[in-house]
Amino acid sequence: MRKWHRWISVFFGIFMLWIAVTGVLSQVAVLWPAGAPDPALEAAATPPEGFVCPEGWRCSPPRATSGIRSMVGLFHHLHSGETFGALGTTISVLSGFALIFFSISGIWLYVQMWNNRKKRKLTPRWFWK
């Protein structure tokens, strides 16, 4: 299991770092405080005269976005791999599977080390040197 853990991490480590960074950036962009409303967007958001919102619909003007908040879509496309086409999306999905594998194999390796310590009658601890 350790051999697989090492070999897969060599390849997917770079992609998982990319996914982690772009995922954090997309969340930071969403949580970033909104700036002052853009008057040009506000003017464009007013419906034409005589427009009536259909029953059951919620008609609201688009939110004015500026600065880092306007980059949420870009960060999402980078995060999902869509920017790089089918190959990027495939690598993104495979990186997700690799992350699942690393989680399961990491727990498996930890349990094996725990059991080996117990068999050698060493003091079982959560974390050891």
Rank of each mutant, 00 (worst) to 15 (best):
M1D: 03
H5A: 04
H5T: 03
R6N: 02
W7P: 00
I8K: 00
S9N: 15
S9Q: 14
V10E: 07
V10M: 10
F11N: 00
F12C: 03
I14N: 01
L17I: 15
W18T: 01
W18S: 06
W18N: 04
A20R: 12
V21H: 02
V21N: 03
V21Q: 12
G23D: 03
Q27R: 09
A29E: 09
A29F: 01
A29M: 07
V30F: 10
W32H: 07
P33M: 07
G35H: 07
G35E: 15
A36F: 12
A36D: 11
A36R: 05
P37W: 03
D38N: 15
D38W: 02
P39M: 09
A40N: 13
A40K: 13
A40V: 15
L41S: 02
A44T: 02
T46W: 01
T46G: 05
T46V: 13
G50F: 10
G50C: 13
F51W: 07
F51I: 13
V52R: 11
V52S: 10
V52A: 14
P54S: 09
E55V: 05
R58I: 11
C59Y: 11
P61D: 03
P61K: 04
P62V: 13
P62Y: 15
R63E: 15
A64G: 11
T65E: 14
T65L: 14
S66L: 06
G67M: 02
G67S: 07
V72G: 01
L74N: 07
L74M: 11
F75V: 02
H76P: 01
H76K: 15
H77M: 05
G81Q: 01
F84L: 12
L87N: 00
L87E: 05
L87M: 08
G88H: 06
G88M: 04
G88T: 10
T89I: 06
I91V: 15
S92A: 14
S92I: 04
S92Y: 02
V93R: 05
V93I: 13
V93K: 08
S95D: 04
S95I: 02
G96E: 13
A98S: 14
A98L: 01
L99T: 02
F101Q: 05
S103K: 08
G106Q: 15
I107R: 04
L109I: 08
Y110A: 05
V111W: 10
Q112F: 04
M113H: 08
W114K: 10
W114M: 03
W114V: 01
K118H: 03
K118Q: 05
K121E: 13
K121N: 11
K121V: 02
T123K: 14
R125E: 13
W126L: 12
F127M: 07
W128T: 08
K129W: 14
K129Q: 12
